[in-house]
Design a protein around this nucleic acid. Structure first.
Lengths: 333, 333
DNA sequence: TTTTTTTACGGAAACGTTTCCGTGAATCTT
DNA sequence: AAGATTCACGGAAACGTTTCCGTAAAAAAA
C-alpha cells in the first residue's frame, strides 16, 4: 500500500521532483525522451495527482458546489443532469448540497465554501426575502456564484432562469381559452421567488383576457396533508372551474382532492401546472403542463459558471430560457 | 479580499500559528482565556479552515464519492436523499458522479479517486460481468468502498441491497393469485445484477405456483423506442395476460403500448413493476408496484461507509432491506 | 529549598504539489 | 573564438494546515 506520488516517481527514475512534475504537465522545458519515461512509469503505476496538494498549491480545486432545495421532484434531477454533462466535459467535480428549504442550512453550507473548498457555486436560493450577506461573502472572497431558477433579483450575479412570467400568463390564457371562467391560482406559502413572478403572470392574463371579477389566490402550506385540507376547502367553497398549480406537487394533491369529492377532470374542472414530471402523460387524466427546460437550465448555468471561473471578469448578463406548454387531457374542452 | 487563514489570525492576536490551530481544535493545552480570544476573532472574521490544506495534512478530505448510473428514475434520487441525510449529520460532503451505464466511465471515475480525493466510495456498478480491477485498486489503496443496489456478488466489500429475489417471487405470485395464466417477464438487456436475480425470483414462483408451461422472458433494449417495438410485437404474438416489468421504465412503455393496441389494464392484461415512482398511484390505471426502500438503502449504505472510514477494519456483513408490494388497480381482478 | 511535574505556548517539520530561480552544458551569434 | 542565448534539468520555497518536539514559567512533590 505504498503511496504513488511524484516523489516516488522521481526516485524510481533518478530525476528531480520538479522535472517529473513538469514532464507530467507536458512542459516544453523537458526533453521528449524524459517525458516518455515519466509518462510510461506514471501510466504503469496508475499515478494520480493528489487533489488536496494540487488544490492547495494551485489555489483551485476543480470542484463546484451545487446547492438546491432537494430532489423530490424531477426538475432538480434534470438540472443536475444538465450540470453534470458540463462538468464531465470540462473535467470538474460536483459537490452536492440540499437545503431542504431551510435558509439557515443554506447559510451554513455557503459558509463552509468561502475558503477554497470549491472554485464556484451554483445556487437555487431558499428564501428571496432573507438577507444574503452569506452570498456577499462569496463575492468578497472572489468565489464565482451563478444563481438559477430560484434567484434573487436584487443580486447582481449571473442568473439563469426560465420565462416564468410569460409562461404563467400563457398557462392562464390557455385555461381561459378552454372555457374556464373562474380560475384559482395555487401558490406556495414560502418566499420562493418564482412564486411571486408566476402569480403576476396569472394576474396579468386574467386582467387582459378574462371576465373573472377578482383573482382567486390560495396560499398552500408546505406540508402535504395541510395543503390537501386547504385545497379541499377552497374547491368546495369557491367552486372554481380551472386550477393553475404553480408547482407540480400541488397539482398532484389536486388530483387527489378531486377524486375524493368526485370532481371530474377536465369536465368539471381543468388543471394546468408547472411540472417536469416524466409521467405527466400517463396520469389519470394526463396532465397539461408548463414544462421548464430543466436540463438546459442546468447546462447553461454550469457553462456560465465555468466560463467565469476560467477567465475572471467577463460576467455576461442573465439568461432566460423558454418553457413549453404541453396540452393534455386535463384541460381539454 | 485578503485571505483569512490561521497565519492571519495568529498575527492579529500575537500568537503562534500552532497555538491558534490548537485553540480552534479546542485542545486542552490551551488556556481558556486564549481560546476565548481565538474563538472570538475567528467568529468575527468568519474564519473557515482551508479544506485542501487540512486534507493534505490530515490525509482525509471529509468527502465521499457517490457513483450511480444517472438520475432518470426516482430510485436514485431517493437513495441520494438517504445518503445526504447521513453525510449532513456527520459533517461529510458528497461528490457526485454519473456513469450513464457506461463501464468505461465508471473505471475512469474510480481511477481519479484512488489518490486521496475522497475518503470513501459508494457505488452502484454498471456491469456485473466486466472485470473490476479498478475497484481492486480502491481496496489496495485503502479507500473504503460500499456497494449498493447493483452489486457484484463476487466482491467482498460491504453490500447494501434489497430482497430482489424474494420480492420478485412475491410479485409473480401476486399476478398468479389475481388469475394470470401467462406471465411475461420484461428484462433489461444489459448486465445489471438485479436483472438476473429478479428473473430467478420470477422463475421460481412460476414453477412453484403456476401451471404456465414455460417462462416468457423478453429482453428489452435500452433505447425507449426500440423497447416499445419489441414489447409491442411480443404482446401481439404471445398475448400474455400478465406482465412483470423488472424496471419502472419498461412498465411505463407497456402502458403506452397497451393504449395503442387497445388492451385494457387490468381487464385484458395485468401489470406489476419494480418502481419508486411517486406518482404510481395517479397513473391510469394506478400501478401496482414492488417498491424498494430506496431512502433506507442510501441511508444504510452511507452509514456503513462512514463506519468503516472512521474505525477501519470492523467490516460487518451485508445488509438486505425489504421491499414492499403495493397493490393498485393495474392488477385488480 | 530543591527536584519533578504540569501548564501553556512557540518553532519547525511534514503532507504532495507547482513554480520561481539558478546553472552547467550545448547551441547559436558575431 | 569569445560572448550570448537556449536547453534541460535540479534545488528550494510556497500553499495552509496539523502535530511533534522543545522549553520557560508556574505548580506540585520531595
Amino acid at each position: 500500500m505504498n503511496k504513488i506520488n511524484i516523489k516516488y516517481l522521481a526516485r524510481e527514475l533518478n530525476l528531480a521532483i520538479s522535472t517529473v512534475s513538469r514532464a507530467l504537465r507536458d512542459s516544453h522545458e523537458i526533453s521528449p525522451e524524459t517525458k516518455a519515461k515519466v509518462f510510461a512509469l506514471a501510466k504503469r503505476l496508475n499515478y494520480q495527482p493528489n487533489a488536496s496538494a494540487s488544490g492547495l498549491r494551485a489555489q483551485q480545486t476543480k470542484m463546484i458546489a451545487v446547492v438546491i432545495p432537494d430532489m423530490v421532484n424531477d426538475f432538480f434531477s434534470l438540472v443536475i443532469s444538465g450540470i453534470e454533462k458540463v462538468t464531465q466535459e470540462q473535467d470538474y467535480h460536483i459537490l452536492l448540497y440540499f437545503t431542504h428549504g431551510d435558509h439557515a442550512l443554506e447559510v451554513s453550507f455557503i459558509n463552509t465554501l468561502v475558503n477554497g473548498r470549491v472554485d464556484g457555486v451554483l445556487l437555487s436560493i431558499t428564501d428571496e426575502n432573507a438577507n444574503n450577506e452569506h452570498l456577499e461573502q462569496l463575492n468578497i472572497k472572489g468565489i464565482p456564484l451563478v444563481l438559477f431558477d430560484r434567484v434573487n433579483e436584487r443580486m447582481d450575479n449571473v442568473k439563469v432562469t426560465s420565462d416564468n412570467y410569460e409562461s404563467a400568463a400563457t398557462a392562464t390564457k390557455h385555461l381561459i381559452d378552454t372555457g374556464c371562467e373562474k380560475i384559482a391560482y395555487l401558490k406556495v406559502d414560502r418566499n420562493i421567488p418564482v412564486g411571486t413572478i408566476r402569480m403576476n403572470g396569472y394576474l396579468e392574463a386574467l386582467e387582459k383576457h378574462s371576465k373573472q371579477k377578482s383573482p382567486l389566490i390560495l396560499e398552500c402550506p408546505n406540508d402535504n396533508d395541510e395543503a390537501f385540507t386547504v385545497i379541499h376547502k377552497m374547491l368546495q367553497s369557491e367552486k372554481p372551474d380551472g386550477i393553475f398549480a404553480s408547482v407540480e406537487k400541488l397539482a398532484v394533491i389536486c388530483y387527489r382532492v378531486c377524486e375524493q369529492i368526485q370532481l371530474r377532470i377536465p369536465e368539471d374542472i381543468k388543471i394546468i401546472s408547472f411540472s417536469n414530471l416524466q409521467t405527466a402523460a400517463l396520469l389519470n387524466p394526463s396532465l397539461t403542463t408548463i414544462t421548464q427546460p430543466a436540463f438546459d437550465i442546468g447546462e447553461t448555468a454550469a457553462k456560465e459558471l465555468l466560463r467565469i471561473i476560467k477567465k475572471k471578469g467577463s460576467a455576461k448578463g442573465d439568461v432566460v430560457l423558454k418553457s413549453r406548454l404541453i396540452e393534455r387531457r386535463s384541460t381539454s374542452k
